[in-house]
Design a protein around this nucleic acid. Structure first.
Lengths: 135, 135
DNA sequence: TTCTATGCAAATTATTTGCAAACTA
DNA sequence: TAGTTTGCAAATAATTTGCATAGAA
């Protein structure tokens, strides 16, 4: 593992964000201070860092992969309206039957992804407050 | 909504499977009895049926979308080794705080996706039974 | 110097879309 | 007949990969 400006910049950028950026999002931002960085490098580093367990890759609904600087198991919330992904406090994680150990039928659970889908507060407010059901 | 042979065949095929096929998997199978069906038709119908709530689309880890004839909220298990997706009885679903209603910070929860990742029984057995950690 | 990481572009993979023809109601 | 659905192929979108060169140890 070599320490490169690119890798540091990518990690630093991800860590300062609370939204859950895609590789392209990171690329787009890091590019401001590092105009020559390539999308491929961003993808490679994000993948690398996730492999090292320094960040977490989340497969949220919607196709694209997103990244999270928080490597601890915690739920996410995906808004169907604005497509944003928010964090949900880990306290609401399911009552996992022996995560990390054997489990029903001999499986070995290594991780959990819990995603709630629905409408975020802004989008929900916009729909229920006034009563415009008809969108 | 018009009833076409293709749509029926796709739905029928999905309903008879317990694995969680991708659009291509369905296409590949349905093709045996309906050689001219196109991938586009499979994608369109799967999307259509999911929209109608007749089947469920699941965004599992790994990039491709998979489909499930069971529309009820229930957990899935994704094997990191063989990439298979299995069903987990709904009984192990998390203790959801008012799913379907408002929730922390004004969100409205419409659905839940719970995915456990790890090693399925076969893959787990292969790794722990003999003690071949190296691989 | 040695070998990893980068930039760039081409290559893949998954999914979507346009359009004329086929088919259902 | 009227309007939906299909097949085919081209178009997108997201991600990966090959390769020569720049850069870190």
């Amino acid at each position: 593992m070599r320490k490169t400006e690119q890798r540091s910049a990518i990690l630093r950028e991800l860590q300062k964000r609370k939204d859950h950026p895609t590789a392209y999002d990171i690329y787009h931002t890091v590019r401001c201070s590092m105009p020559n960085i390539s999308l491929g490098t961003v993808y490679r580093n994000l993948e690398y860092l996730a492999g090292k367990g320094m960040i977490r890759k989340i497969d949220s609904a919607g196709g694209k992969k997103r990244f999270d600087p928080n490597t601890q198991d915690h739920p996410h919330f995906h808004c169907l309206e604005c497509d944003r992904v928010e964090d949900i406090p880990a306290a609401t994680m399911p009552c996992v039957p022996d995560a990390g150990n054997d489990w029903p039928e001999g499986r070995i659970i290594l991780g959990i992804n819990l995603e709630y889908v629905g409408l975020c507060s802004s989008c929900a407010g916009r729909k229920t407050a006034v009563g415009h059901e008809g969108d």
